[in-house]
Write a protein that binds this DNA or RNA. Structure first.
Length: 529
RNA sequence: GCGCCCGUAGCUCAGGGGAUAGAGCGAGAGACUUCUAAUCUCGAGGCCGCAGGUUCGAAUCCUGCCGGGCGCGCCA
């Protein structure tokens, strides 16, 4: 696939290579923030100065002499300490437009990733209640990362792991039973409304065993969770339960494996994994003195299982309150003989609602469904990944509910709807065209829009690399702004066929770009609003 | 005490070595006889927490400090 920016990159690279006899440093080719500095600028002359032993501006001049001959470049100027500022020619814009349109949905996928299987485990909330807003961020972020990686060519498997063993689950089972029988909820149990609803709906006789209440309760809760996630357009390839790890013998097998690697020891009646050998700050118990396995024992088995199944990398999406798991999981993998670099833990910061932290026992729980009810799935997803995952996120519910019409998601979606509306009108009025109207010299608003569209391959590659879907959101807003300005100033269905062809191509490319970008974050691109 | 994240405009935040640091919201002034005004244009608003260091060049990388958030169980 042809990519207009890559072509520009190659042009500059060739010029540099001609000067150095082959060696090409990082070009530093980017869009300057200041329009006076050209459409693109490179700082390569300054980087070459130590290598060539010449003044940066002299090097810049030599490069400029070569670059100015390229038909895609309209003008070259040298500025400041040795920047080379490039202005693109009309031919570049036409080529860019036609490249993007012919690539269509494939545009930006040219950045070929390794193609190894990447396992992305996310959400993984225990089935003891509805998903909360914290899980909502996990779902939106994790799913967007998975979509991003898929977009750049990785083979992604999405997995949800849930604990269905241990104390919390026992308490949940007791709570379900108590709710059904109208008895007192046990200390530390689950008083949520959803537990009551679920208990009432279970097709079990009142004298069913606690084990049955527990198993059926978990099953029903998982159905609820799955439904909430599907509503948010989040799906999984694998659902793995803790019990299956115990039942299959995977836990015992993992402990044996770690033992054979020499990382297991006994102390004070418990069995330990020496994770400190691999950078953890303390060793971890696998088998407690009372004979019970810890959750970490299952976690250890699970990480081993991921690699055994053939995953090249195992990504975990966890909330900031679990950041202590990073060194633990990596060390666990190392104790099993795997390269800890293959474990990658993505931590997102906590979500607060109107400045307050939420908790099931604080009585101020906002659920994923509640959020979607309040502001809609599109706004919820957009909002949840709008900010860096490294940044705390506060959801001002009053504002989110009340001002949904000024939520940025509508701004972006409206740009897409406008594109489709224009294309429909062109069709209806028999004004459709072919090609990009080669004789038309782009107006500034047209040029700005095309340059923005051409950024996509770099934007999506960087976002995938940094596991930072918020960069997609930022870009869609910039693109929408460029489009709205273009639309406001220039009439698309112009009587001049050359102009109309160019603008219709730009509108088509913009519509595709918005839809493609929004899809990466799981947001719909409506054809009309 | 130790570890992770954050500190940028009144507020919420982009910006992951480049030039005069950006956007949205809020407050101010304007723009619709044409494809959707859910739009656009203009101005105001900044010791980029502080201090050092690396570099031709630092909001960005390194060190220390200050402030905020979250963790640091044979809990789950």
């Amino acid at each position: 696939m042809n990519d207009p920016v890559t072509a520009l990159h190659a042009t500059v690279s060739a010029a540099v290579s001609g000067l150095t006899g082959g060696e090409v440093p990082e070009l530093g080719l980017e869009r300057p923030g200041n329009a006076a500095h050209g459409d693109y600028a490179t700082s390569v002359a300054m980087r070459l100065a130590p290598l060539l032993g010449k003044a940066p501006r002299d090097i810049a001049q030599l490069l400029a002499d070569v670059l100015v001959a390229d038909p895609a470049i309209a003008s070259v100027e040298i500025a400041g300490p040795g920047f080379i500022n490039l202005r693109l020619a009309a031919s570049w814009y036409h080529q860019a437009l036609s490249d993007m349109l012919s690539a269509g949905a494939q545009f930006g996928r040219s950045v070929v990733a390794a193609g190894d299987e990447i396992l992305v485990e996310f959400v993984s909330a225990n089935p003891t209640g509805d998903l909360t807003i914290g899980s909502a961020r996990n779902a939106a972020y994790g799913d967007s990362v998975a979509r991003l990686l898929t977009f750049v060519g990785e083979q992604v498997t999405r997995e949800y792991y849930f604990n269905d063993a241990g104390n919390q689950i026992a308490l949940f089972g007791q709570s379900v039973q108590a709710r059904r029988l109208g008895a007192e909820i046990p200390e530390g149990g689950y008083p949520g409304d959803e537990v009551g609803e679920l208990a009432a709906a279970l097709d079990l006789p009142d004298d069913a065993s606690l084990a049955e209440w527990t198993a059926r309760g978990i099953e029903a809760m998982m159905v609820r969770i799955r439904g909430s996630l599907e509503r948010m357009r989040v799906t999984f390839d694998l659902w793995t339960s803790e019990q299956t790890l115990h039942a299959s013998g995977a836990v015992q097998k993992a402990i044996a494996q770690a033992r054979s690697e020499g990382h297991v020891f006994e102390q004070a009646g418990a069995t330990w994994l020496r994770t400190t050998s691999f950078g953890d700050d303390k060793d971890r118990v696998l088998l407690k003195a009372d004979g019970e396995l810890t959750y970490f024992a299952a976690d250890l088995a699970y990480v081993g299982l991921k690699f055994e199944r053939g995953a090249a990398r195992a990504l975990y999406v966890l909330g900031a309150d679990h950041h202590g798991y990073i060194s633990r999981l990596k060390a666990g993998a190392a104790c099993l003989g795997y390269d800890p670099e293959r474990v990658e833990v993505l931590i997102y910061q906590l979500v607060t609602v109107s400045g307050e932290r939420m908790g099931k026992r604080r009585g101020n729980v906002i659920t994923l469904d509640g959020l979607a009810d309040a502001i809609g799935v599109d706004a919820a997803r957009f909002f949840l990944v709008q900010r860096s995952h490294d940044q705390m996120l506060d959801i001002d519910l009053d504002l989110a509910v009340e001002t949904s019409s000024k939520n940025p998601v509508f701004y972006v979606q409206y740009a897409h709807a406008r594109c489709q509306s224009i294309l429909r009108k062109a069709q209806a009025d028999g004004l459709t065209t072919t090609g990009t109207g080669p004789a038309h010299a782009p107006e500034p608003q047209e040029a700005a829009l095309i340059r923005r569209l051409a950024e996509w391959p770099d934007v999506v590659a960087t976002a995938a690399d940094l596991r930072a879907p918020h960069r997609i959101v930022t870009w869609t807003q910039e693109l929408a702004a460029d489009f709205h300005a273009f639309h406001h100033d220039l009439f698309v269905l112009h009587e001049d066929e050359e102009i109309r062809a160019f603008r219709l191509s730009a509108v088509a490319a913009t519509g595709e770009a918005i839809a493609r970008a929004l899809d990466v974050i799981g947001v719909a691109a409506p054809d009309s609003m």
